[in-house]
């Protein structure tokens, strides 16, 4: 079973304004987006159309907080367990995707849990904290309907 969730950021406009400054001031306090349980993809897309443009870094931050932060630290600052993502090479996204998908050392394999689109969002968040050049913004509203996993019961 999966949950279709339209990821919106009420603070989206603010975040995009910050983007122009190189993502220097990622807000810590951005509101959690409501999850739309069971909404069909078209409805999710419709919601997204009405919503402000999506900030991939903020969408990625939400996934990072739930899945990565406990080992990789608050805003990537860690002294234990996880790789220090502040030192990750900006040019090597392929290595990032490989490690996330298959796991590496203490890192579990997330390939069965995170969709490629979600890994892209986490990559965008890491880039925003590290001050990497910003990727082109996410294009069509359909791209922002992200599938979040739900435990099978």
């Amino acid at each position: 079973m999966s949950l279709r969730a339209a990821i919106r950021t009420p603070a989206g406009r603010v975040a995009l304004a910050v983007a122009a400054l190189g993502w220097a001031a990622q807000p810590l306090h951005a509101q959690e987006a409501p999850a739309v349980a069971g909404a069909p993809a078209s409805a999710a897309a419709a919601v997204a159309t009405l919503a402000p443009p999506v900030d991939p870094a903020e969408a990625g931050r939400k996934i990072y907080v739930a899945s990565c932060q406990r080992c990789h630290g608050l805003r990537l600052a860690t002294n234990g367990i996880g790789f220090d993502l502040r030192t990750f090479p900006a040019h090597d996204k392929a290595r990032f995707l490989r490690s996330v998908t298959n796991g590496k050392g203490a890192m579990p394999a997330w390939g069965a849990t995170l969709k490629p689109a979600q890994m892209d969002l986490i990559w965008a968040y890491i880039g925003s904290v590290n001050g990497w050049p910003v990727d082109p913004p996410v294009g069509s509203p359909a791209d922002v309907a992200v599938t979040l996993p739900v435990a099978s019961r």
Binding site: L28, P34, T113
Partner: peptide, 21 residues
């Protein structure tokens, strides 16, 4: 900061809050 959260399931945390530091 406390926020409403659905249980994400799988290997994802379910805290219903944001950890600010």
């Amino acid at each position: 900061k406390y926020v409403k959260q659905e249980r994400p399931g799988g290997p994802n945390w379910y805290l219903g809050l944001e950890l600010g530091g």
